[in-house]
Each structure stands twice: as structure tokens, then as C-alpha cells.
């Protein structure tokens, strides 16, 4: 729209989706990201749920749709800023200033620091991993324990840093359930004879194709699901991990030794997101994610008409939702700016 300038903070799926829309509506767009790569967490994924599509393909599609006119600033951080009526002023780490007519916060999430759940021994026991590390192993095409052995048994633990008041997290992180199931299936393909367990409190298979994937995991891939949260882990002398849980469906405590324990860590607001929000005076919800105007309607809007929220900075989202919300936030901003000028 006659060359108005919009800054998008965050070049993850939501930021990319937003930046593919706005230039076509006539805006000048600048996209900033702390990391040196496009795609945010997506760039670390191997395959996506539920259809096991390659993450690189989606990332390519998303980046291909971003017009060349978008100026992309990677490896750069927003260190300060202010919002006034009709304008956004941002300071970057090298001291330069950016003035914009509109701002899209697409600042994403950080994974919960698994070390905070001490009882699972992440960072202490050799063979406790997070799903992010497993995804990286899939990318490398090699699954092995810290002692470079092929695992014969693997347990996934759901809800690490989700739905855990002791960890200060009341909310559900939404995607870990299906990630655990997806990764279990991928593991099965690499390790046909391994015993693969999923310890869960609930399995929230809300998305299209998720429940079917779960069913396949049970039936075709022989993944063993145990309803019960692991309460503690210990390391045995050979480096395997001994876990304790209750099998709540038989009401009996259970003990099991696995070669690898994989913690499905939840989402928490990105540290950078919180810092920037404080500087810009954006409101946080009780869950510390950025608070939009409404939770059902106007989920992109903030108290400023020219600042909108996209993607997981407002709470746990799936990739699908992040992409949709990136596009929707762009449109919401467009509407808003249109109203402001007319």
C-alpha cells in the first residue's frame, strides 16, 4: 500500500507466511531474525506430522513464496523500540534504527529447558534426550546412544514442561503428543526390533490425521503406550536409564530400563519475545505468552492498531496454525492500516 513499511520480527513459519502476503499488497517489508537461518524451529525438523512430509520441502515452499523485495535481516536482534500512534521505532543491535508503519510480532517460542525437571536427569544422565535432539538424529540418519550403541529400548515421556504447575506451566503445548507418536514411528522404521514406549498423561490427538497416526503407531508399528507420567529416572551402571512410572490403567507402579529416554519438552514464550514485548509495552497473558485482543476473535490484534501478533508468540501452535496465523495477521494489519489511512 503505497510503500508503507512493515517490520516482521521473526522469520519462522509465521513470519515467512506474513512476509509472502504483504509485499503483494504494496507494502515495503523488512523481516528480522536473531538466528542466521530462515524458518525458526522448522529448520531443525526432519519430517512433519501427521503425513511425514519433509520439513525442508515445506521450508523451501515458505521461503520461495517470499518475494525478493522483502529485505531480510538475519542474525540481527531488536534491542529497543517504541510504539507511537501510527509509527513503530525499532533499534537493532548494531545501533541502527528502523521506522515502520506497522509491526508483526512473529517471535515464536523456546523449548522448555528440560534441565528444570531435574528428576529426569537431562544434562546429567548420558542417555536422556529431548525430541529436538532426536529430530536432529533423524536428520543425520543415525540413532544411537551417547555410547554409540544402537538402542534396544526407547521411552518417550510426554508433557515435560507442559501441564505442570510445579514447572510453572499450566498450559498444554499441543504438538508434543503427536510429535512423540511421529518420532516413535520413525524410530520403529530405523529400529525394527527395539521396544518403544510412550509414557503419557493424555494423548491429545486433535488435528486431522493425528488420531489415525496414533492408531497406526499402536497397531502397525507396535509402539507400547503406557498411561502414566514418569516420576523419576536413574542411571544404571551401563548408562541405560531406569524409569519409574505408574501404569495407571492397572494401578500398579512400574519400573523399566531403557537405552534412551526422550523428553517431549513443551513450548514456552521465547526469551527474546518477552524482552521485546516489555520494551514495546505489549501485554502478556498469565501463561507469559503475548496476549492478543481476544482468544476466539481478533486473536492477532494488540492494543495498538498497527502492531499484530502471529504464530506461537501467542501460545503453542502447530505449524499449520502458525502459517495460517502469519497470513491472517498480515491481513489483519492491512485492514487496520487501511482503516487508519481512510
Amino acid at each position: 500500500m503505497d510503500g508503507k513499511h512493515i517490520v516482521i520480527v521473526g522469520a519462522g513459519p509465521a513470519g515467512l507466511a506474513a512476509s509472502s502476503v504483504l509485499p503483494r499488497l504494496g507494502y515495503r517489508v523488512t523481516m528480522i531474525d536473531r538466528s542466521n537461518t530462515l524458518g525458526g524451529h522448522l529448520s531443525k525438523w526432519y519430517q512433519l506430522f501427521p503425513d511425514r512430509a519433509a520439513a525442508t520441502v515445506l521450508l523451501e515452499q515458505l521461503t520461495d513464496e517470499v518475494p525478493d523485495s522483502v529485505s531480510t535481516m538475519l542474525g540481527r536482534e531488536v534491542t529497543g523500540g517504541s510504539v507511537s500512534s501510527g509509527a513503530v521505532e525499532l533499534t537493532l543491535d548494531h545501533g541502527e534504527h528502523l521506522s515502520a508503519n506497522g509491526l508483526i510480532m512473529a517471535t515464536g517460542f523456546d523449548l522448555f529447558d528440560a534441565r528444570r525437571k531435574e528428576e529426569y536427569g537431562y544434562g546429567i544422565y548420558d542417555n536422556v534426550f529431548t525430541q529436538a535432539e532426536i529430530e536432529e538424529m533423524f536428520r543425520q540418519g543415525q540413532i544411537e546412544t551417547r555410547h554409540h550403541r544402537k538402542p534396544r529400548s526407547i521411552a518417550f515421556l510426554h508433557c515435560v514442561g507442559s501441564r505442570d504447575l510445579k514447572a510453572g506451566v499450566a498450559y498444554c503445548s499441543k504438538v508434543c503428543c503427536v510429535t512423540g507418536v511421529k518420532q516413535a514411528i520413525e524410530l520403529r522404521e530405523l529400529l525394527p526390533d527395539a521396544a518403544i514406549y510412550n509414557f503419557y498423561m493424555d494423548l491429545r490427538m486433535f488435528g486431522r490425521g493425528f488420531e489415525e497416526l496414533y492408531q497406526q503407531a499402536q497397531e502397525r508399528y507396535n509402539i507400547r503406550f503406557v498411561r502414566g507420567r514418569i516420576s523419576e529416572a536413574a542411571e544404571s551402571s551401563d548408562g541405560s536409564v531406569i524409569i519409574k512410572a505408574e501404569d495407571t490403567l492397572t494401578s500398579r507402579p512400574l519400573k523399566l530400563t531403557v537405552d534412551m529416554l526422550v523428553l517431549l519438552t513443551g513450548m514456552q514464550p521465547a526469551a527474546g519475545s518477552l524482552e521485546l514485548a516489555a520494551k514495546l509495552g505489549l501485554v502478556l497473558g498469565d501463561d507469559s505468552f503475548l496476549k492478543p485482543y481476544g482468544l476466539t476473535q481478533q486473536t492477532f490484534k494488540t492494543s495498538y492498531p498497527h502492531v499484530v501478533l502471529a504464530g506461537s508468540c501467542t501460545g503453542p501452535t502447530t505449524l499449520t496454525e502458525a502459517i495460517l496465523s502469519g497470513r491472517s495477521a498480515a491481513m489483519a494489519l492491512h485492514e487496520s492500516l487501511f482503516k487508519l489511512t481512510n
Binding site: 521396544a195 492408531q215 499402536q218 497397531e219 507396535n222 501404569d247 492397572t250 500398579r252 507402579p253 512400574l254 519400573k255 523399566l256 530400563t257
Partner: peptide, 26 residues
């Protein structure tokens, strides 16, 4: 009362998985 899955005989589970279909869906 603890179930020690390391010692439990799960071979029958495997046999069941081959013989009877569907039960893992529970």
C-alpha cells in the same frame, strides 16, 4: 507390587500381536 517390565515376559505380547489383530488399538 511394582511391575518390573525388565523382567516381564513380553514374548507372548509379541505372539499375540502376530496372532490376534486389533487388540493393540485399545
Amino acid at each position: 507390587r511394582q511391575i518390573d517390565l525388565d523382567k516381564a515376559d513380553l514374548s507372548l505380547v509379541q505372539a499375540l500381536a502376530r496372532e490376534l489383530t486389533g487388540w493393540q488399538r485399545c
